[in-house]
């Protein structure tokens, strides 16, 4: 048995899984609060990556140095993704708050299609190279064939984001308002929670986290195009469902489990059917454990 190979697959799975987890957090938060799958969430992730790429391009040509570029690009990506998320909710979802779910879902698909093609037409349909901004850490040299420094950063950032989000939801006033809204929107409204604001904020936070993931993975893989959000979005959704949609730790767990299974599947079985595998996985979960690993069983109110 080749232990290095096994270990590299494990680390690769952890990388994928972390990114799925970062995107899945946004899905799960939005779903928890307005029970809508935000189909355009993957597009927000893509827009975050593009914004970073543009910032990097402009700053590099202006002669800035590495670390400053990294920071400014990351901030720009997060700010812009958050702004897009906020606008998206205002335009495509808020007017449909009381419409049938089918309508909101179709609107979400429309938004996803629109944003993809907006970037395709305003920028390009081709793949663009994305510079690796994370320096190679010297202490990782001996194990470079197993884990790269950009991956180490991905793990660290994912853990940090998860921690911050948990603190926010658990201990702040806003977090309390979010939990109240998720449980019963009407009751929350009656007890003085500004539900519209809570929903907006959920989109903003979810989008910002997705953009973080977008920048990290783009820098790790080294290229992006307008279409990257589509598949990543769907897989992150699978992760959210796997973990139990509506549950924050579930999203992370689901992301990691999906990342690892995918990594081992492509490493040991076949890479042709990588995407088929994720979908079959989804169907399997939904049939055998629709409430996910950490989700609670939902009873419909009759």
């Amino acid at each position: 048995m080749n232990w290095d190979y096994l270990l590299s697959l494990f680390m690769g799975g952890l990388t994928r899984g972390s990114i799925y987890a970062l995107i899945a957090l946004g899905y799960t938060m939005v779903y928890g609060i307005i029970t809508l799958i935000n189909f355009a969430h993957g597009e927000i992730y893509m827009i975050g990556a593009f914004t970073a790429l543009i910032a990097i391009g402009v700053l590099t040509l202006a002669g800035w140095n590495g670390t400053a570029i990294l920071l400014i690009a990351a901030v720009a990506a997060v700010v812009y993704a958050a702004a897009y998320g906020w606008t998206l909710e205002r335009i495509a979802y808020r007017p449909l708050r009381h419409a049938p779910r089918l309508s909101a879902l179709i609107s979400a698909i429309g938004m996803s299609l629109f944003l993809q093609n907006y970037v395709r037409m305003a920028q390009t349909a081709n793949f663009l190279p994305f510079p690796n901004l994370i320096p190679e850490f010297a202490f990782l040299k001996p194990v470079a064939h197993i884990v790269r420094s950009s991956e180490l950063v991905i793990y660290a950032v994912t853990a940090l984001v998860m921690l911050l989000l948990t603190l926010l939801v658990r201990f702040t006033r806003m977090g309390k308002a979010m939990r109240a809204t998720a449980q019963d929107r009407d009751m929350a409204m009656l007890s003085g929670v500004d539900v519209d604001r809570v929903i907006s904020l959920t989109f903003v936070i979810g989008s910002a986290i997705a953009a973080t993931g977008g920048v990290l993975i783009a820098s790790h893989i080294g290229q992006i195009n307008f279409y990257i959000g589509f598949l990543a979005g769907i897989k992150a959704f699978v992760a959210a469902v796997l973990g139990g949609i509506g549950s924050l730790p579930g999203a992370v767990l689901g992301g990691l489990v999906l990342g690892w299974t995918e990594s081992f599947f492509t490493g040991y079985v076949s890479s042709d059917y990588e995407d088929v595998f994720a979908f079959l996985f989804l169907v399997g979960i939904l049939i055998f454990r629709p409430s996910g690993l950490l989700g609670r069983k939902q009873m419909e109110k009759v």
């Binding site: 179709i106 609107s107 429309g110 938004m111 996803s112 907006y118």
Partner: peptide, 16 residues
């Protein structure tokens, strides 16, 4: 495709 995306959103918002 840009227009189709906008179309889906607009139809749902204004003329479901």
């Amino acid at each position: 495709w840009l227009l189709f995306g906008a179309l889906l959103v607009l139809m749902m918002v204004f003329r479901p």
